[in-house]
Structures are given as structure tokens and as C-alpha cells.
């Protein structure tokens, strides 16, 4: 057989639109997932059950259900339960973000727990409250230790944006599917999609490795 990418190249605008859609969804999910994950992680870390129980329930629920099911549920079931329309972007962003939050919550919790008790005591000894100690002393150190785990979480988030294609959100895989179905060229279309993912992700990952090395040296 002969590989012919001309039909894919002819649809490059569609792929560019898809790439923009992918990056946009990724940015939303990364920021909201990691931020909400921190809130949930602090809840998991808290000893008060009013924070701990809801956080644990949240983490267990979203870790033990597939993201794909969550996206489909938000898109098709939520509008029936609650009286509002939901866009493909919102449904996908909601599902992926909540899932990312559940996974990153335990990364945050583990990172915070790994900080020695003496750091808390030193912060308290100069009169800091819980929040001040967390923000100024504990989190900055914990985040440094968590960077590798958070990086791999971010990569997972990037790849899971492809699940949005199930609700016809315009992202790379969705556009690839479209091109493949119009031109009957699944080999070229899906290969191109995979290559684009690699081309975007690989430099990002290298960058985070470099950052990690730099942080190690700074210590």
C-alpha cells in the first residue's frame, strides 16, 4: 500500500482548529484540575472530618469511575437532571478536571505529608498560623517535591483531552476522525494526529525535566 498524506494536508485548517481546541481544553483542565486538586488535597490532609470526609468521598468517586463515562454523563445525563444545556467543551472540561483534581489531590496530600514536622514547628514558633505556615513554608517545599508527579499528571490530562471527541468537541482526535471518514484514509489521518500530539508534548516534557534538574541543582 502507498501512504498518501495529501488528503490530510488538504485539511490542515481542520487540524489546526483541532490543535487549538485540544490546547484550550488542556489549559482549562490543567488550571482548574490542579487548583481544585489542591483544595481537595488540603481537605484530605485535614484532620477535621468536615473537610476530610467530603474530600475522601470525592477522590474515591472520581478515581474509581472512568473519565469517559463522566464526560458522557455530564453531556447527556446532566441536562436531563438539571434544567440547562451543556456545551461539549463544558462537559469534557468538567469530567477531565474533576478526574484530574481527584488524582492530583493525593499527590498534594502526599507532598504536604512528606514535609518534616520540624518545619511546621519552626513556622509556628515564630507566630505563624496554619494558613501562613502552609502557604509560606510547607507548600513551597512540598510543590518542589511533587513536581515529577504533577508533571506526569499533566501529561495524562493532555492525552485525556482526546476523550472529548466522544461528545464531538472540536479537538485533534475529533478532527482526525472527521478527515478519516471523509477521505477514507484512517492510516494517514490517525498517524498525523499521533505525530502532532508527540510534537506538542515531547518538548513540554523535556522542558519540565530541565526545570526539575535546575531545581535539584539550586538546593
Amino acid at each position: 500500500m502507498v501512504w498518501d498524506f495529501s488528503s490530510v494536508l488538504a485539511n490542515s485548517d481542520a487540524l489546526i482548529a483541532g490543535a487549538i481546541g485540544t490546547v484550550r481544553l488542556f489549559a482549562i483542565c490543567l488550571v482548574s484540575g490542579m487548583t481544585f486538586g489542591l483544595v481537595v488535597g488540603l481537605g484530605r490532609y485535614a484532620r477535621t472530618r468536615w473537610f476530610n470526609w467530603p474530600a475522601t468521598l470525592f477522590v474515591e468517586f472520581f478515581r474509581n469511575t472512568p473519565v469517559l463515562v463522566q464526560i458522557l454523563w455530564f453531556y447527556f445525563a446532566l441536562p436531563i437532571v438539571a434544567p440547562f444545556e451543556i456545551s461539549p467543551l463544558s462537559a469534557a472540561a468538567l469530567g477531565i478536571s474533576l478526574n484530574a483534581a481527584a488524582f492530583s489531590a493525593d499527590i498534594y496530600r502526599g507532598g504536604i505529608q512528606s514535609i518534616e514536622r520540624g518545619q511546621w514547628e519552626a513556622a509556628r514558633a515564630i507566630g505563624m498560623g496554619w494558613g501562613q505556615a502552609m502557604r509560606r513554608i510547607i507548600l513551597p517545599q512540598a510543590l518542589k517535591r511533587m513536581t515529577p508527579a504533577l508533571t506526569s499528571r499533566a501529561i495524562e490530562i493532555f492525552k485525556s483531552t482526546t476523550l472529548a471527541s466522544t461528545v464531538a468537541y472540536v479537538e485533534l482526535l475529533q478532527q482526525g476522525k472527521l478527515i478519516a471518514s471523509i477521505n477514507f484514509n484512517p492510516i494517514e489521518a490517525y498517524t498525523t494526529v499521533a505525530v502532532i500530539f508527540f510534537v506538542i508534548l515531547w518538548p513540554l516534557v523535556q522542558l519540565t525535566y530541565a526545570l526539575e534538574r535546575r531545581m535539584k541543582r539550586a538546593e
Partner: peptide, 24 residues
Amino acid sequence: RERDLTGVRQRVGMVFQQFNLFPH
């Protein structure tokens, strides 16, 4: 309460066996 204790700790300084400096 935390508020009471943060006030006291500012007036009673402490030096630890393990120093506990903030490494960052």
C-alpha cells in the same frame, strides 16, 4: 485557639535541637 497561641509564640521564642531552618 490558634489566635491565642500565635500571639504567645511571638512573645516566647524557641530554638530547636534540629535547627529547623526553612531550606527554601
